[in-house]
Write a protein that binds this DNA or RNA. Structure first.
Lengths: 321, 321
DNA sequence: ATGCTGAGGTTAAACGATTAACCATACAGA
DNA sequence: TCTGTATGGTTAATCGTTTAACCTCAGCAT
């Protein structure tokens, strides 16, 4: 069903049909009505392709992620897909599989496919190559412009403050220092805890094995930079007979489904992925439409989710000789 | 950079440029070479949109999933995205958010966007509405044609046989009976265990609370239909002081990242998502190209991953007075 | 010279929608 | 009667590629 077919079958010109359906040109009310009804009945669906060719816009966004296997991907993808859909946009996915080169290849493939804009969660420590279409960076730490990110530092502060308030005086922070995001989270935790507690920092995954020593040495809480890492820490602790939260408090970040399935249920910090998606798409849409408002890095607050894995430290800290 | 621009700048016709670049028409070797070089230098990129309009094909597939938040989604999406990419296809995602109606809406949106075919992981118990483009169903249980699925029954058998071989005589199976896939997995487990053990079946999530009783009553293994459920079961068991695998063996299915992070590491069954993706895309490509070979449901074997959560039952089963 | 063949191009139509520019009719005002 | 102006359409160009059909020589045989 093309415009032309509808037109000839109705004995009018394609322009009239187009005008009637779009409501833009001048068509008498009754003819417009007749056309609309006929088109609906005949199942006419405008060709996005033809429209794209004419308008130069495909109403499609590209989404590039470093690793689709990343447990956070589903959340972001879902929020983005839903919001994009609300805005009448499609989302084309691409996996940048580990390397910066693959990331750039993914970018240019998307551009060649004609996407109107690109949403990208960049590889650790890389700056994606500039493209000919608007680009919004998601969840990069402290990038200059066109960035929408969860407030990782703030998130770190949130959990740090929670732990400080519980009265912990000796805590260990563990995360992967190669990741900007995780570094930011550690920074936040440190800020919130510095005045209240001794801080030990370990880097994952190598530092996992030192954790038990830290605890024997007096640490009463372990703050991790991700839920998955927290699960791993829990494994390590329980292998050595340490109870959470009895002997140690433990926290994650991300609020993955597993944080509710594990025992004890994990205290964590959630990203407002819907808000991130909404902002990201708003920004990219405004850029696509040429409103070059230099929207600077936007930061979306995180939310503390207190569950069972954190409590006040045991009063008797006597075991350390 | 359009064909036309390249053509006029080189003083030839667009047809010649097109022919030279595609290698299809008749162009003298040296002219073709000159054109190719110039096009490359000028950064000419063919418009996919125009090509799509002319050819009627967009080289794009739609991927519909019931819930992008499903922990299996990343794996499938990644495998599919990579394989599609290898075949020169793009992947447009859509979330069917819970309801069968939303699923059908997602489908028709994709069709309107002009995808050449659709890959769908259907909602539980729904049969997606037939569309005007080829469709391949992924991971539906026992559907008729055009289905590519992990062999869930076989996977169930695999883990069942493993447990039988370990010598368990009394096991409980737990899963969500509303899900076709999970039912299939239970079926497989049952087949493999029927001759060797007493089988108790519980449905998740309500049956979780009965598990401890089952074990006190003599059950020595709990087989779940998913890793996430296994984690939940582990939580329930340890809340009641039961050790895995000391007191009970436990297994999952899916081989999610968490199965390695938890303690003990989970014995599980993995889907060969790459193989599934490859088959699914091969099928849909052949349909798009009109080779209507009535490819019937294809089933991809699963793979047993033995880790630490399963062992032989304790010899002394004396406590059950 | 004349006709043929083949190589190497060019012309033009088509895909489907949008839209600027144009045309025709009716009716009002002078 | 003639001009002016809505009103309601139609024509045709355009976006960038692809491709069937056609044109134009050069070289060759008759």
């Amino acid at each position: 069903m093309s415009l032309k077919k509808v037109a000839t079958e109705l004995g009018v010109s394609v322009a009239t049909v187009s005008n009637a359906l779009s409501g833009r040109g001048r068509v008498s009310a009754e003819l417009a009505d007749r056309i609309r009804r006929y088109a609906a009945k005949a199942g006419y669906v405008p060709s996005q392709t033809a429209r794209a060719l004419k308008s130069g816009r495909t109403d499609t966004l590209g989404l590039v992620m470093p690793d689709l296997t990343n447990p956070l991907f589903p959340r972001i993808a879902q929020s983005l897909a839903i919001e994009a859909d609300r805005m009448g946009l499609g989302v084309l996915i691409a996996d940048s599989r580990g390397s910066a080169e693959e990331q750039d290849r993914a970018l240019s493939r998307l551009v060649q496919r004609g996407v109107d804009g690109i949403l990208i969660v960049p590889q650790r420590g890389t700056t994606p190559a500039r493209q000919s279409v608007p680009m919004v960076v998601i969840n990069a730490a402290a990038d200059p412009a066109n960035t929408v990110s969860a407030d990782h530092i703030g998130g770190g502060r949130l959990i740090g403050a929670h732990i400080a308030q519980l009265g912990h005086k000796d805590v260990v922070l563990i995360g992967d220092p190669l990741s900007d995001v995780q570094r930011d989270r550690i920074t936040g935790m440190t800020e919130a805890l510095a005045a209240h507690a001794k801080i030990r920092t370990r880097s994952a995954p190598d530092g996992l094995k030192d954790l038990v020593d830290d605890i024997r040495d007096g640490a009463t809480a372990v703050l991790t930079t991700s839920d998955l890492l927290a699960l791993r820490v829990l494994a390590e602790l329980s292998r050595h007979g340490l109870q959470v939260p009895g002997d140690v408090s433990l926290s994650g970040i991300d609020d993955l489904p597993l944080s509710q399935a594990m025992h004890p249920q994990l205290t964590t910090v959630a990203q407002a992925t819907e808000d991130i998606a909404e902002r990201a798409i708003a920004i990219i849409l405004s850029q696509i439409r040429g409103e070059q408002a230099p929207l600077l890095g936007q930061t979306i607050p995180m939310r503390l989710v207190i569950r069972q894995s954190t409590t006040s430290p045991k009063p008797q800290q006597g075991s350390q000789i």
